[in-house]
Design a protein around this nucleic acid. Structure first.
Lengths: 146, 146
DNA sequence: TCACCTAGTAACATGGAAGTAACTAAAGTT
DNA sequence: AACTTTAGTTACTTCCATGTTACTAGGTGA
């Protein structure tokens, strides 16, 4: 009984993977998971989403000051691509000096929740990963000595 | 009552974000979420994990054939970095010709589950994102006409 | 008159990821 | 003697994300 339960779980996972893994033609173009993950492959998108998640509304320079180390250009580029995907909204007030407010859209907030779930897993398991890296480094050293 | 509920939820999220966002010194070195996400920033890691998730054990060339478009070099590089992080295990059988079997470690299987959750969200929301992109492209076009 | 403010853009430099192609070991097959 | 197989490695090139610097408009305050 227990065995079939585990086996069923395994089959369910395989089914899910099949749905996620796209056909050979789609692999470059539309695979949703790949597309979503590409959002975080870059250096600043996560920080931007997390920072906006904390504060509801932020102006350009407020964001820039809260995201440590980001340059003007990279923040602009990051915000544009997030806006393009409908994750961040951009409100321009045509005053002088100009004022622009950025905030997460509902879609962006949904993604934020997913990110936080992943972050929970990451925090729980980061130690195991760091240990694995150390073990690997040691093995490498030994292999080089031969 | 409803208002305070929503407000509490918001505070809980802010707390979580604070924990995820590292201090200024840590931002480059140890931020776990950044570290985990860096695993998928590259082109082939997800496909490798998903493919291994489907099949339990696979040899180098079996993997290469199932992951459409990957070169020998990139598969090697990807597998090494996944092995380094303890997500994939590598079993060498010293025969001739050599045989090497790759499989997910328990850690890697845990990550796979997280990935599949994210994939579910991605599938639910990919249409909204694609719509947003179209809207953005239209806006861009109009702006260029002026 | 001059510097300063915001929210950027333009031009250019750079490093690392990705890709390509050739090469390897060691034994078995023809 | 030459060819095949497996699981890579080495050397080289290409490309893109990232980063740096300078520049902009249009008004404000000294």
């Amino acid at each position: 009984m227990e065995v079939t339960k585990v086996e069923n779980q395994r089959l369910a996972i395989q089914k899910k993977i099949d749905k996620v893994l796209c056909s050979k033609e789609e692999i470059e173009s539309c695979c949703p998971i790949k597309d979503i993950l590409a959002r975080f492959g870059d250096k600043w998108s996560i920080y931007t989403i997390l920072t906006l998640g904390k504060e509801e509304k932020l102006r350009f320079n407020e964001l820039k000051n809260q995201i440590n180390g980001v340059s003007q250009r990279m923040l602009t580029v990051t915000l544009r691509s997030l806006e393009e995907d409908g994750l961040v909204s951009r409100q321009v007030y045509p005053e002088i000096p100009p004022r622009v407010e950025y905030s997460l859209t509902p879609l962006g907030q949904g993604l934020l929740l997913q990110l936080l779930q992943l972050a929970d897993w990451a925090k729980l398991n980061i130690d195991q990963i760091l240990e694995a890296r150390e073990r690997y480094a040691k093995k490498e050293k030994q292999a080089q000595l031969t």
